[in-house]
Simulated assay, not measured.
Amino acid sequence: MEIDVSADAFPYLTRINVLHSFGEIIDIPALVAANTHPWYNQTLCEVNQSVVRLGVVQGEYHWHKHDAEDEFFYVVSGRFLIDLEDRVVELSPGHAFVVRKGLLHRPRAPEKTVILMVEATGIVPTGNA
């Protein structure tokens, strides 16, 4: 399933279909190289009751929150900022951060950035706010 939320309010390409099954090799560099969208999110695989997603992002996401799920972000390359109501978290390659459920946040990437995210399987990628 693909959610193309490319209306003016949500100019993102979010694919929630599970791309790979158990036992398959996932070629992250090939997926990154094939991407042409400025804010791309692809579900790679399922792990227990969670999914691992690949993000190739540049620009700003909207302010949002997830009422019932935490989000884990890991930066592979680039620079990733997470605006919180009281501070900005800056992540470089090799850095990770968990946004607690219910916390209003806005992800940003001032340059092309590759991230991996771990989220509950049922999370709504565009948030509740």
Rank of each mutant, 00 (worst) to 15 (best):
Y74I: 02
E60D: 13
H64T: 01
A96V: 05
D70K: 02
L13I: 07
Q58I: 09
A96D: 10
P38Y: 04
N17M: 10
G122S: 11
E111I: 08
R108I: 00
V124F: 11
H20E: 12
V124E: 15
D70G: 06
S77I: 03
H37I: 05
I26H: 09
D8N: 12
D70Y: 01
L19C: 08
P93Y: 03
Y74M: 08
P38G: 03
T36G: 10
V32Q: 07
G78M: 01
A120W: 02
R100I: 07
A129Y: 13
S6T: 13
L54T: 02
I3K: 14
S6I: 04
Q49R: 12
I25A: 14
R53W: 04
R79I: 03
L91K: 04
P93A: 01
H66A: 03
K112W: 10
I25C: 10
D83C: 08
Y12K: 07
L44R: 08
I28K: 07
I26P: 06
T121C: 10
Q58C: 10
V124G: 10
P11A: 06
E2Y: 09
D83N: 08
F10P: 00
V114G: 00
S50F: 14
V88F: 01
S92T: 12
I3W: 11
V51Q: 15
A33R: 07
N48C: 07
